[in-house]
Amino acid sequence: MTAVLDIDGVASPPRQNGELVFSQPWEGRAFGLAMALTDAGVVSYDVFRDALIAKIGAWESAPPEGQDYSYYRCWLQALEQVLADAQLVAPGDVAARAAAFAVRPAGHDHGHDHDNDAHHN
């Protein structure tokens, strides 16, 4: 496993006592996805990190009203962007798939706790 994380600066992930902290399950998934993709060479970590720094910078320079800062929101946006730039996953594909998941009938095997989902604006 050769992926290197930023341990300092704006791109370094939230930690507690030196360990990574995921406040919601999807954050861990998003983290694992990026690590797996960079480890496999599908996307370069440097390119991803640049995108992450840009997303964080964009949020900080103009925080959307009513939205709390979320490192992993920026992380996910950066990941979507590098995959779109590499023409591997188009943004519209993600939105369409997410919309399809959103209307799944109750009782499907989707196990997330929606009470803990990110804020809606």
């Binding site: 979320s70 979507e80 594909d93």
Partner: peptide, 21 residues
């Protein structure tokens, strides 16, 4: 309006389908 958990799940399912992860 599409929350981040769904979006992550959507991205993962697309990557799995396409053999990228």
């Amino acid at each position: 309006d599409i929350d981040l958990a769904l979006r992550t799940e959507a991205l993962e399912s697309l990557l799995l389908e396409r053999g990228l992860a």
